[in-house]
Simulated assay, not measured.
Amino acid sequence: MQPPSSRPLHLGYNPIEYVNSHLYLGVWIDSNLSFRTEISFLKERTNLRLSTLRSLTDKSNGASYKVLRLFDIQAIRSVIDYCAPIPVGANPTLIQKLETTQNEALLIMTNSPRWTRLCNLRMECKIEAIQHRIKARAAGIIAKITHSATPLPPLTRVPASINLHPDLLKQSWTHCTVKAIRLFNLDTVIQQEPPTPPLSLEFIAHLTPPNFITYYTDGSVNPPKAGAAFICGTKTAAWRITDGASTLLTELVAIREALIDAKNTTVSPAIIIHTDSLSAIQVLRQPDRYDNINICSTIVNTAYQILARKTIIIHVGISGNERADNAAKQATNCPHSDIEVTLSH
């Protein structure tokens, strides 16, 4: 940043250097908020991965279209998705540089001639334009943050600007963000009251019938160690699982073991499982799975066997499950793995 005066700033006895741009959490912030440095940085990173994509298309033993598209989404577009709320206020001419990279990726994936219409390529590959993608991601992320129970202070200007006429807003990052939010009809979401905090375990226990069996599951990762646990009344079960397991995998192991334990229980008409992993529930609900297939299949099959004679209720977003969390953390200190699982890839 350019100094406001000739007097330098010091941290202790060390002078602080003034710079025109700074890399913060993987995003370049420049003094004018033009995001030119960030766009150039993204262009350089995506071009390197574009070369890898091109090398995968060898005519003799190259990858299939499905693999190429997956690489584009996971390795190239993810770089832009990470910082989507930042370049939403950038000049469209700068965004076009990123659009050029994606267009090149589409041509490579489909092995199409360069005179192919880009709109047809996007429809064929089901990949939206970068400009639209950045606005959609930014609008969704900003709406989620501003509508949370504890919104970040710098984003409080966005809800305040929602009801202003577009002509009254200066051309700024806030103006571009508000336009993106209006484009996807998320302005009504931001203006709603923030959601209530998660229900406590004490409140849930008050509503749960006494003859229901309740499990609390959790997983813990202390790289490279990993553990999983469940709590059911006075019973605590915990395991150390294969080193290198992801947080999602530990949560799935905890749910699986809770279901296996519940399968052998015949004294209750219903089973309630509390988990703090929304991603685990989302994975189990997917009809097609490409990862963690073995453990997900075991969970689903065990659940169907239980459903033949019991009711299963799975909750997510319950706060206060410290016992299961502590048990999973303690399991990571076990000298050997109790459960061997196939690591996700």
Rank of each mutant, 00 (worst) to 15 (best):
L248R: 06
P197R: 07
S277W: 09
L23W: 01
N264H: 06
T302M: 03
Q96H: 04
E322L: 12
L343C: 07
T265V: 07
V67T: 15
G244S: 08
V158W: 01
A245P: 02
V221L: 04
L186D: 04
T93M: 10
A262G: 05
T214N: 02
C232R: 07
S220H: 04
A205T: 10
T52C: 13
E17L: 11
T174C: 08
L94N: 06
L201A: 04
K144Q: 09
G244N: 09
G12C: 04
Y215L: 11
T156M: 05
L183Q: 07
V189K: 08
F184I: 02
R69A: 13
Q191G: 01
A138V: 03
Q191A: 06
P4L: 14
N185Q: 13
Y82T: 00
C119Q: 06
V19M: 04
I190D: 03
A180V: 00
H10M: 13
H315A: 06
M109V: 15
L106Q: 06
F35T: 02
A229H: 10
M1T: 14
I281N: 07
I181C: 07
W173V: 02
R122W: 03
N294T: 15
L106W: 00
G227V: 00
H345T: 04
G140M: 12
Q2E: 14
L68S: 15
H10F: 15
V267S: 15
A331S: 09
I190L: 00
V158T: 09
S60L: 10
N264E: 05
I299W: 07
I255G: 08
L207D: 12
I241Q: 08
I313H: 14
P4A: 13
F71G: 01
P87V: 11
L201F: 08
R77I: 02
G12R: 08
V221H: 04
T101W: 07
P223K: 14
I318H: 00
I127L: 09
L107A: 10
S277D: 10
I299H: 12
S34E: 13
G317I: 12
S31F: 08
N292G: 10
T52H: 12
M109N: 13
D276C: 01
G320D: 09
P8L: 11
T177A: 10
A84F: 03
Y65T: 15
I213F: 08
Y82F: 15
D276R: 04
L98W: 03
K126W: 09
A136K: 15
T275G: 10
I39S: 02
K329P: 07
T332Q: 05
E340C: 11
L9V: 15
Q96V: 02
A205P: 02
A245T: 15
Q2V: 01
P153S: 09
I80D: 04
N333W: 09
I76M: 12
G26V: 08
L186E: 00
T146V: 09
R49A: 01
Y18A: 11
D288Q: 11
V178G: 05
S6D: 14
L11E: 06
L107N: 08
T242E: 07
V27I: 14
P269W: 02
T208L: 04
L50V: 10
N20W: 00
H345D: 12
I73H: 10
N20L: 08
K97G: 11
Q286S: 15
A205I: 01
I134P: 02
G89S: 03
I162E: 02
H345M: 11
P92I: 05
R256S: 02
